[in-house]
Write a protein that binds this DNA or RNA. Sequence first.
RNA 1: GCGCUCGUAGCUCAAUGGACCAGAGCAUCUGACUACGGAUCAGAAGGUUGGGGGUUCGAAUCCCUCCGAGCGCGCCA
Length: 545
Amino acid sequence: MRMRDRLQECIDKAMRDLGLDPQVPGARLERPANPNYGDWSSNVSLVAAKTVGRNPRDLAGELAAVISASPPPHLVNVEVAGAGFVNFHLEPGYLHEVLVDVVIQGERDYARSQLGKGERVQIEFVSANPTGPLHVGNGWWGAYGDSLARVMARCGYEVSREYYVNDTGGQIRRLGMSLLARLRGEPVPQEGYQGAYVAELAKSYEGPDDDVMTAGRWAAEVILENIKRTCQSMGIHFDEWYSQASIEESGAVAQTIAILAERNLVEEEGGATWLRSTKLGDSRDRVLIKSNGDPTYLAGDLAYHRDKFIVRGFDRVIDVFGADHHGQVASLLSGVRALGIDPDRLEVKLGQMVSLVDGQAAGKMSKRAGNFVPLDDLIADIGPDATRLLSLMSSVDQATTLDLDLVRQQSMDNPVYYVQYAHARIASIDRVAKERGLALAPLSQVNLSLLAHERELELLRCLDELPDVLVEACEARAPSKITTWVRALAGRFHGFYHDCPVLGSAGGEGVDPDLMQARWWLVEAVRIGLAIGLDLLGVRAPESM
RNA sequence: GCGCUCGUAGCUCAAUGGACCAGAGCAUCUGACUACGGAUCAGAAGGUUGGGGGUUCGAAUCCCUCCGAGCGCGCCA
């Protein structure tokens, strides 16, 4: 059992002994930044004092007294500090147990959680229209969705990743018009797609030059294949590529509108069919069928979400949109509510915009205007790993600025190298040990208590945190927390590596053999931690660089 | 005009309402290689967390307001 869980049990038991409810909302057990405040610290009495009507310091004192009457293993001292914190001071032996946990559970089982309890979650992300190549923003939100899926899967959710392909409607028509214009050497219409890639596509188009929709569908198909290739090159994986056209053709749209009509939420007006969403508190009504008979995007989207929740039966759906699409969130949520689906089951994450600076020029990206930086170009410049790590450094809520010039020139100082280098160094230690004919002794025969250097303890503390970081990342839907942790672990490893030789110089002098074995196992534990973290981020853990 | 998302070191970003140090990296300055990979390590400097109010034992975090930025507000998708 982890030390954290043991301490939590002690606190809960102490609360019960004092006749109080151990379930205190807002109570947390955390690692204080300041080492003077111990290894772990609980704010339970501060939070509980409000509802119980007690002085927090007094309550904390009673808790500390109860706990120290039957202390858990490794506890040196428990004390009250500040306004009423309960601080636990431990002897470092518990950290050696962490090492054993990491090594025995390994890459597959360390830092797993059953938080999700097998709940079925669908994460829909990227879903960029197949009217042009993915841009850098798509890559960032794509890495986010993909890593979130990995994090949630490790937390016991059954995750399905989906790309909604908008392969129908006016944009396909515009794409076809643009392609045919290029084919005939005519100027591309104002509302068409101006990008050079359309001209490239036109060169290999062999269909009729007078059928806009055929040309548009053909181009969209080719572009979608390229999008799939781009995603693959960044390690972004999808379980489903769901076609909007298939929804419309299946009759699901009409069916969905019929359901809304049964609920008396649909009316005709001005030749169009409206969803009276104002009846449910929406700020305005929404059109479902245009007066020309075509369904709106919203109608298709509602049919699609009904399919997610009702037909396919997902417990929870997470949609990752670019912030430029946040205008559709309100209508989607009120539409889902109108369908009788609990809107709490739908989470919409808005990925903030990625603005690009190249030297000085900063331009607004637009697929129609054709002036955007393709994701492929960035990947070609800095590689897929750097692209992923950079995108996962900041939270999705944070609008970021990427200076292409800087990223290219300083690629050697890119954080991805710092992290991967740590992993490669570990592999290198193993290689050198093998060359010297050294063997790693069985863990049970190794004296781990030799690991007492602050650098060593620091590493173990960091490894101990991973299960908590994983859960936090999952609950906050924030895989960037994994990035922060991985960088911290890598940093501590580099410090350890600098101060604590594992194998010593050639010939083996300089390091006591028992200490060597203990450190070697520590290094193995770090390797496991890095591998888990990097896998969650979708970044490779290389043996050499 | 209304709405959404934001505003943290010179730059890019961290910090589930917690504690006399708000942290990293880059850039700047100074040190450390006859040890397993120096793509590293150690140190210095850098802040009124956009301004102002409020809630709280306690605020970068929650509320109000002002300023600033981005994005939305269609019978486009």
